[in-house]
Design a protein around this nucleic acid. Sequence first.
DNA 1: CTGTTCTTGAGGGAAAACCCTCATTGTTCA
DNA 2: TGAACAATGAGGGTTTTCCCTCAAGAACAG
Lengths: 239, 239
Amino acid sequence: MTPDLAENAFQLAQSLEGEQSLQGIKTRVRAFALPLGYTRFMVMAASAFNEDPIQNIYWAEGDWLGDGSAVRAEDYVRHCPMTRHVVEAREPFFWTKVMDREGECYRVVRMPRGPGQHGLQVPVFGHSGLEGAVSFGGDRIDAAPRTRMALMLVGVAAFHAAHRLLGRVPEEESRSLSDREREVLAWVAAGRRHADIAATLGLSDRTIENHLRRIRKRLGVATTSQAVQVAIRNGEIKA
Amino acid sequence: MTPDLAENAFQLAQSLEGEQSLQGIKTRVRAFALPLGYTRFMVMAASAFNEDPIQNIYWAEGDWLGDGSAVRAEDYVRHCPMTRHVVEAREPFFWTKVMDREGECYRVVRMPRGPGQHGLQVPVFGHSGLEGAVSFGGDRIDAAPRTRMALMLVGVAAFHAAHRLLGRVPEEESRSLSDREREVLAWVAAGRRHADIAATLGLSDRTIENHLRRIRKRLGVATTSQAVQVAIRNGEIKA
DNA sequence: CTGTTCTTGAGGGAAAACCCTCATTGTTCA
DNA sequence: TGAACAATGAGGGTTTTCCCTCAAGAACAG
């Protein structure tokens, strides 16, 4: 029992808000989590939209593979079902990995204990739904409810701090449509036809069509319906 | 200074996870927030998609209008700019309301103090982006960073507890498409054409077309592109 | 057992969207 | 001061979608 766990978590989460270096984030989070038995850390940017939910890895540290070898972040993520499960989870969850006849076996558990690797996976939500995830892992971990809550607080703060320092500036990539194109696509998504939009915007039928062709090309999609989906996903237009 | 603020917040957030009645939520949250100067509470389900972000109000209590009259939830929300601002905020923010020549003046502030009403607005995020908001208000409120963090923790937990008890109903309205229709529309949103989808699903071209007509009729939209937008908004298909 | 909904399929024709190219204005940027 | 790009418009033709209606079998509820 750590009587001031909550207090420490609060102070850490607050200090992370102003942290200016990834090194600082790592040092502080380590100092907090190591006494609780967590020796492995992973902070990643995620998205529920993509087929590969993990967009970027800000911090991967520790013996995630269980054999002492350095973790290659992308590989691990691809073969770890827990990073899949995070796109469905609504709250942090514990998992356990045990070895059986058929190799590694991951399971979501209420109380991780016993032999094997254990961990806590913390999803981070934002305006576009799932935006990141933080993993804490170890061999003998403290999995009390209050610890789960503390790590949730710390994990979310750590993700935001890392994201602020390293995260995508999506002005180049995501904002790939011009204002006019966005406007036209928004009308299409609102159910208007080319002729309606042309009349509304005081343009030619042909111009609308040309804009839409350019939109499809820019977004790399085949149909306008798909362009609507992708534009919503990218935040170009609203749903 | 409250030495065990963090501790209390943790215990409260945990206890809210298992709370089975709205009354219990209210009682616990009140007991926590009143000593900090917060006398007004609002817990609401929100959505960034709609033009009116507030979908539902689970708990509205206290002298929000400043004249002792009972708050009529919808009216208040409609005329309070802070509930608009929450759709853009990424984290909890303090606001202050003062009266000037032109009436009420709301402002987002770093440190609310002095005369007037003050409050903390806490956005709650989930898989579909903004899912709710919690407002704490009062005349003389504790606005220390640690208090902000504690209320964030408590607010999020309170929202989830209230949402769990009162939230879900819209199975009738939102799930207005059949499984097959959803499947077809998902393929359309993925950029496939009628013939492709027909081949993929082993159906006739005509059947796909009929499904899509029915989809448009059901969603009350004019074009398939709009159907994609509406279906994403309703959570029928993902973006 | 009858009415409703889901799923499937079709005929026939009209409308809309889509494809290629080319061209003229502006603006902005190196 | 050209290059690049946004925004506009068009010619000419092909493909796709959309509209109406009709229909039949299966599943399911009252």
